[in-house]
Amino acid sequence: MSQSIFEMRAVIKRYGVGVTRIEALHIVELDAAAGGVMVLAGPSGSGKSTLLHLIGGMDRANSGELYVAGNSLHSLSTAELTVFRRHKVGFVFQAFNLMPNLTALENVMLAAEFAGLSSKEAKHRASALLERVGLTKRADHRPGQLSGGEQQRVAIARALVNRPALVIADEPTGNLDSKTGAAIIELLTSLKGEQSVIIASHDERIAAAADRVIHLADGRIERDEVPGGAPQKASV
C-alpha cells in the first residue's frame, strides 16, 4: 500500500456569519496516494478551490482533521503553515500570479529565497527549472513580455523550485488557448512519480490524464473515479 500525500476526516469549511453562513465544503473522508495526479472536478461553487486551499495550507477548516505530507494542518500555527507552504507545497494559479516587476528567473528564484536558499543555489535551481520548462531564453523577460503559456510555465517552475512533495494547481489551463493548455497539462502530468499533483479543473483533457478524479458538488464528494475504470468510492 502506497503512502498517502494527504488524508482528511470530517473536514468542514464554512464561510460567512449568521444567516449568510454557508457550508462550502464537507468531506467525511478522503485521502490520496503520494506520487499520483488527482483532479478535482465539478461546477463552479462546488468546493474545488476551497478543498485545494485547505490541502495547500492557505486556509483553515472550521473542523475536522487534515494531514498533508506528514503535517497535521489542523494543529499548525499561522507561522508553521507559512513554513509548510514554503517547503511542502507548490502553487500554480489560473491567472499565473507572477510578480510583474521581476523577470522570469527572479520569479522562480523568489520562492527559493523565501525558503532560505542562497542566491547562488536559488539561481542554479531556477535556471535548471526554466530550462526544463523550455524558457531558458526567456529567463530575463518580465511577465508582461511573455505569452500566457510561457507565464504559466514560469509559474510551474516557481511551484517546483523548492522540490515540494505536493503541487497544487487551480484551473491551470483556464486562461490559456487549447493548444497551450495541452502543453501545460503535459507538463503537469509529467511530474507524476516525482511529486503528487492535485489539479482543480473543468478541463476534461486533464481529467483524462489523471490517476484519479474526484467529482465535487455542493461541497461534497459526488463521485470518486479512476479514468477508464470503475468508481472507487461512493459519494459521501
Binding site: 492557505m58 507559512t82 507552504r85 507548490g90 502553487f91 494559479f93 510578480m99 523568489l110 523565501f114
Partner: peptide
C-alpha cells in the same frame, strides 16, 4: 493585495 497574497502563498512570511 492579490500580489501580496500570492507572495504569502508561495512562502513569504509576514516579516518578509
Amino acid at each position: 493585495i492579490r500580489e501580496l497574497g500570492t507572495l504569502k502563498a508561495v512562502g513569504a512570511s509576514t516579516p518578509n
